[in-house]
Design a binder for these strands. Structure first.
Lengths: 193, 193
DNA sequence: GCTCCAGTGTTGTTTAGTCAACAGATTTGA
DNA sequence: TCAAATCTGTTGACTAAACAACACTGGAGC
């Protein structure tokens, strides 16, 4: 059996795990202090107390770090709700929408000045994860139809809803918001249930 | 000019600083959980997430770790009160007695079951520091007399007082206790003031 | 235009940490 | 009482991180 990515991470050399954690933690702190563009690789390695050359042994540049960081945080959110090991149900879909809303919401409150440019950088990562998660769900059923089109629609809709929610000046109760949105998303997915 | 031990610690390879911190932190946590004798080098390295061989690159055994740990904590206490960069005055002596009392007091409250055997292990380290601190103070004066005898007496007296204080069931106010003890200690040192 | 400055990304060499294995000491417990 | 298990302290081969260089880029200020 293939080792899953989770096991791979845990079987890494302890030095590697330590270094990545130092980088990620420092990056998180810096993101809370100033906006992404004004954070340099220097800043990260200074705060992490690691050598700059070591940074480049792990990440191509700060954009790769952002991708990795966002992916990791998002997947933790997903795993916390055990959405990574289940199948399509309206309830799971609801949880997923909720997770994305909360994730973007947290992003807005924990990051300093999240500019539009910054948001577009994380958007692609999040959508990739939503897309593959929905694909996984739908392809567990016996139905052999291609899922790409409905999954694409649902992915963009979910991200769009969460983005909209996180930008609202006066956010309504999340539960109500999701209740209202859910049927519009599930309508194209029900055929696979 | 010779680099002082403080600078040497700071100029160490970052990996060394990290590893030592991991070891010290883990050791501190373990000491709060169980008594020193039942803590193995394994336990420390497991909690610190470092390799056991790495431990032995830094410390000869767990007793060396205890010595280092106690020394470091005690010196931090001393430096906090800037007693490491001053000379003999009754007031500084008072601060020193206070520091030793508080240090042993904290030791008792933060360590699980501090047995007599454990206490005798740290006693020597602490006394070494008190002795060299008092020697430093007294030898800054112009008086050329040997200080070893009076410093020895004062060192043992101070440690004894602090040990006594930290063992008391109902500890009196520390200030009062020190006020009462101070003259008995300073009597042999005043000649160097 | 120009220099100065701060950051980037890469390199070769040195050093610290990892890992698996070892023999020996101590403890556990059936 | 013997065997299994656990901890110790040490070794040699391997790998990651540190470090000090390097050439390069893109402003900022004159």
């Amino acid at each position: 059996m293939l080792p899953n990515p989770k096991q791979m991470e845990e079987n890494l050399d302890p030095r590697v795990k330590r270094t990545r954690k130092l980088i990620l933690d420092s990056f998180g702190i810096l993101l809370a202090e100033k906006n992404f563009e004004s954070i340099s690789v220097q800043d990260v390695t200074d705060k992490a107390q690691i050598n700059r050359a070591t940074f480049y042994a792990h990440f191509q540049d700060k954009y790769a770090l952002l991708d990795y960081s966002v992916s990791k945080m998002f997947m933790q959110e997903i795993e916390k709700r055990t959405l990574n090991a289940c199948h399509y149900t309206p309830d799971n879909l609801r949880s997923l929408i909720l997770a994305v809303c909360e994730f973007l919401g947290n992003m807005h409150s924990s990051c300093a000045q999240p500019h539009e440019q910054f948001e577009s950088l994380i958007e692609n990562q999040i959508k990739k994860h939503i897309f593959s998660l929905l694909s996984l769900w739908l392809n567990q059923t016996k139905i052999k139809k291609s899922t790409d089109i409905p999954v694409t629609v649902a992915t963009w809709a979910i991200y769009g809803l969460a983005s909209h929610y996180s930008h609202m000046k006066k956010r309504p109760a999340l539960d109500k918001f999701v209740d209202e949105a859910l049927p519009l998303v599930s309508v194209n997915l029900e055929q696979f249930a």
